[in-house]
Amino acid sequence: MTATALQQTRAAERPGYRLRHAARMEWIKLRSLRSTTWILAAGLVVTIALGTVAGLNTSDPKGDVTSNVLSGVIFGQLLLGVLGVLVMSSEYSSGTIRATLAAIPRRPLVLAGKAVVFGTVALVAGEVATFGSFLAGTAALRSSVPQPSLSDPAVLRAVVLTGAYLALIALIGLGIGAIVRHSAAAVTTLVGGLFVLPLVIGAGSHTVGQFMPELIVGNSLAAVRPVKDFGMSPWLELGIVALYAVVLLGVGRALLVRRDA
């Protein structure tokens, strides 16, 4: 075989489609569903509305005002996480997965395309939610409470990291969706992991709480003042949440490759 012929054979064996093709497909799929818009809008509205209410109710001038006005993410994360689940599980419930895999038979690319596209959308939504919460919540503060400012690095860090946290929860949802595949069971798993597990395990001990996403966001990411028992840096805490997302997506990827569709 000549070198050229060999090269041609190799070229023919390499798939022509790349991550950008998978991502383009996922982008079209994501924005062509009304539910995407509705769930994202609901997530923003709920997060910002609760942040505003928290601002109105803040009376302690010595409290962590930034953390208060970001408290809406506790509910906002649920909507983004559920949307992440649905991005994967609705492919199975509708049968779209067969069409998707016929177009992109190299399955890791399908999940990577979803993670890139949906992760980006969720990051933008997350930052809009936290910056919106901060602006609306601090505007609602009574005059006796000092206004935190985004020019304070600790405040800016809290708002930015909390928004990033929302994107990571969305990716955790995507990973759970890839593992569990059935929407209802996957949402139950997500809610159990986010809300129930910290109640069961983390309530007694903050040492374990440092590893629970819901407690991480409230006590570390969104906090401007250090909270007792949360000694790790907020960046490290965000890294823990990111690690969960990476592990879940990794397991989801392995199962997607192994299982029949």
Binding site: Y17, H21, I28, K29, A102
Partner: peptide, 12 residues
């Protein structure tokens, strides 16, 4: 149409 566009995009 969106379903078909998504598939078309996946394979250029």
């Amino acid at each position: 149409r969106s379903h078909l566009r998504a598939l078309a995009a996946a394979n250029a």
